[in-house]
Lab assay of single mutants.
Amino acid sequence: NITNLCPFDEVFNATRFASVYAWNRKRISNCVADYSVLYNFAPFFAFKCYGVSPTKLNDLCFTNVYADSFVIRGNEVSQIAPGQTGNIADYNYKLPDDFTGCVIAWNSNKLDSKVGGNYNYLYRLFRKSNLKPFERDISTEIYQAGNKPCNGVAGFNCYFPLRSYGFRPTYGVGHQPYRVVVLSFELLHAPATVCGPKKST
């Protein structure tokens, strides 16, 4: 009989979020998941679920829940969905086509923008091939755009693969920082350890 609540607040209220190319993952297990707390949290810009209804989450049990978190621009949030393409979905964070879970995003301009620009948040701009679902690539190898080998030196046709967002408070909404948490639900042939409040007695 599990009684402790799942530590969703640790994920959602973290002081610093990860850059999207180096997205953070927390495994959540052996706890009671009260999703209504999240669902009623006012400032969400997006709360979209795939393969599961957000209002039914509290009735369900899962083997594991993974909480992935990172920061992207407002106009990139739409790429955090199954079957998407674009710089983020291709080179930074890719969801599987059969994704079961929820994508939760909110504007973090007050936290993550600075006058003069916040350059701490990076994304991958160049990559030889697209990421596989949930693949994480933190390499900083110089990207070779031409035929000539770069030998690890940036220059003509040789690019550092990461780019900084440089968030400023005055940017338009599409270019403002958004914090994103992706909850993915794993249902294995194993005992369920993460259940909603109704199922955990």
Score class of each variant (00 low, 15 high):
Phe8Thr: 04
Thr170Lys: 06
Phe70Gln: 00
Cys150Lys: 02
Ser139Lys: 11
Gly166Lys: 06
Asn107Lys: 06
Phe17Ala: 05
Leu187Trp: 14
Gln144Ser: 10
Gln84Arg: 12
Ala105Pro: 02
Thr100Glu: 07
Lys48Arg: 14
Val37Asn: 12
Val37Asp: 11
Gln176Cys: 02
Asp34Ile: 05
Gly174Asn: 08
Thr15Ser: 15
Lys110Phe: 07
Arg163Glu: 10
Pro177Leu: 01
Val20Tyr: 02
Pro133Ser: 07
Cys150Pro: 01
Thr63Gly: 11
Ile72Trp: 01
Ala105Arg: 06
Tyr119Gly: 08
Lys56Met: 12
Leu57Arg: 06
Leu131Ile: 13
Lys94Pro: 01
Phe8Arg: 03
Asn92His: 02
Val173Gln: 14
Ala89Gln: 03
Asn24Val: 08
Val181Asp: 00
Thr63Tyr: 10
Phe41Val: 11
Leu187His: 13
Ala33Gln: 08
Val32Trp: 11
Pro43Glu: 09
Phe134Asn: 09
His175Ala: 03
Tyr91Asp: 02
Phe99Tyr: 05
Ser108Pro: 00
Gly172Asn: 00
Lys26Phe: 08
Ser129Gln: 14
Lys132Gly: 10
Val173Pro: 07
Arg163Asn: 15
Phe99Asn: 00
Tyr93Asn: 01
Ala145Asn: 06
Leu60Asn: 08
Tyr66Phe: 12
Val77Lys: 06
Tyr35Lys: 09
Asn58Gln: 12
His175Ser: 04
Val182Met: 01
Leu122Arg: 13
Cys195Met: 11
Cys49His: 03
Tyr66His: 08
Ala154Cys: 07
Leu60Trp: 07
Phe45Asp: 15
Ile80Lys: 01
Ser29Cys: 10
Gly117Phe: 03
Pro161Arg: 04
Trp106Lys: 06
Leu188Cys: 14
Tyr35Pro: 08
Val11Ser: 04
Ser113Cys: 03
Pro169Gln: 05
Gly86Thr: 02
Gly86Pro: 01
Gly196Glu: 12
Tyr143Ile: 04
Leu122Thr: 15
Pro197Ser: 15
Ala46Phe: 10
Asn107Cys: 07
Ser200Ile: 15
Pro191Phe: 09
Asn130Pro: 15
Phe126Cys: 06
Asp112Glu: 03
Leu5Phe: 12
Asn13His: 09
Asn120Asp: 13
Asn1Lys: 12
Gly51Cys: 04
Ala81Ile: 05
Phe44Asn: 15
Asn130Met: 12
Gly166Cys: 04
Val173Thr: 14
Val32Arg: 11
Gly166Ser: 11
Ala46Gly: 11
Tyr143His: 10
Ser164Asp: 04
Leu183Phe: 07
Asp137Lys: 03
Val194Gly: 13
Val194Ser: 11
Asp112Val: 03
Ile72Asn: 01
Ser108Gln: 02
Thr85Lys: 12
Asn13Met: 09
Ser164Asn: 09
Arg25Tyr: 02
Ile104Leu: 11
Leu187Gly: 14
Trp23Glu: 00
Ala89Val: 06
Ser53Glu: 15
Val37Phe: 15
Ile104Arg: 01
Tyr171Ala: 00
Glu10Leu: 08
Cys195Ile: 12
Lys148Pro: 05
Thr100His: 10
Leu38Gln: 04
Val153Tyr: 12
Leu125Tyr: 06
Pro197Gly: 14
Ala190Val: 12
Tyr119Gln: 10
Phe17Arg: 04
Val115Gly: 09
Tyr119Pro: 09
Asn1His: 11
Gly155Phe: 04
Gly117Trp: 03
Arg16Ile: 11
Ile80Leu: 07
Val71Leu: 06
Gly74Ala: 05
Pro191His: 13
Pro133Trp: 06
Ser200His: 14
Ile28Cys: 07
Tyr165Ala: 04
His189Ala: 14
Ala105Lys: 06
Val32Pro: 05
Asp9Ser: 13
Asn120Thr: 07
Ala18Met: 07
Asn40Asp: 13
Ala46Ile: 13
Pro133Ala: 10
Gln79Tyr: 04
Thr100Gln: 10
Thr55Asp: 15
Pro82Phe: 02
Asn157Tyr: 02
Asp97Leu: 14
Asn118Arg: 05
Asn147Val: 06
Ile88Lys: 03
Leu5Gly: 10
Tyr91Gly: 05
Glu10Phe: 06
Ser164Ala: 12
Lys198Glu: 13
Ala14Phe: 04
Gln79Val: 03
Gly174Glu: 08
Thr140Asn: 13
Tyr119Phe: 06
Gly155Tyr: 04
Ser19Asn: 09
Thr3Gly: 11
Val182Phe: 00
Leu122Gly: 13
Thr3Asn: 11
